[in-house]
Amino acid sequence: MGVYLPSVELIARVQRGEPAAIGRLISRAESGMAEARDALARIHKLAGRAHVVGMTGVPGSGKSTLVSQLAQRLRAGGDKLGIIAIDPSSPYSGGSILGDRIRMSDLSADPGVYIRSMATHGATGGMARAALEAVDILDAAGFGVIILETVGVGQDEVEIVRASHTTVVVSAPGLGDEVQAIKAGLLEIADIHVVSKCDRGDANRTLTDLKQMLTLGIHEQAPSDWAVPVIGTSSVSGEGLDELLGAIARHRDLASDTDAGRARRKSIAEFRLRKTAENLLYDRFNAATAAASAKLAEQLMRRESDPYSLAEELLSTTLEGEGDHERDVHSKSA
């Protein structure tokens, strides 16, 4: 793409599945540039066919390796597959090293697999800001299954469940006792549990703990006749991978045309709406308060005032700015 192409002109090429156009539009979505908004709105209309599988778990639990192996099996079945792999940004420099591709090198020569690495760039919840736009773009490009792999998460980054049709939580053996398994948070959100590295001796214990945890309660979001499976996998022997594929396919069929499936899709839409609004608000807040916050922080440091009062003051500068903006909009429409 030698010359600068307007984003709307990339749409047809995205629909034809041209990798360079897909890549460029994802970059523009990531940059948040206003020029791309129109194109992304049209892409959003074109999307909606793909099955989005969220893959999450603690760092080093084997998410990327599992994604790679699932992808090879899905490809054997003929599905075109998109993968969005998210890694953390440095809190200091803002830079990142995105290394998920290394574990996916078996896929790298296959044009039916599109892998995109994304950095969190300050987003929380294990996701990147433009991850859902990237899902739309791959969806519109005809990728039937899209795997969204979160950063390695802790216990509380559960946004993925509001972004995917099927959520797989990957646990590695040996990370805690049975009380870990009944804590709130990450383990609650799984539609499918995977215990990776099952070739290791202590894996059975983790499998048992998770299974017992599941018998203690019912899953909030799952279709009522969905029993959350706990599947042991091994990337060394290939154990459990077909079982996992089968479980994803069953969950997809079951969730697509049931009340629970519709409720899930609605909750996904609502999350996206609120998250987008939140991002817009966050940007405006940052832009409006950049100058004032250093001065107020100085006052806080010297204990001349308290955090709440100063925060209210900081907020009022944003809201004033917002008010002006509102008035502008109204006076223009009047």
Partner: peptide, 30 residues
């Protein structure tokens, strides 16, 4: 590491890649 610390997003492919693999990755990652 140096580029990361300078605030860039760095994708590393690992060892022993073919030119085809490298270009596919570079295009997908834009």
């Amino acid at each position: 590491r140096a580029l990361r610390d300078a605030g860039m997003d760095v994708i590393y492919t690992g060892l022993h890649r073919s030119p085809e693999e490298v270009v596919t990755a570079a295009v997908q990652e834009d």
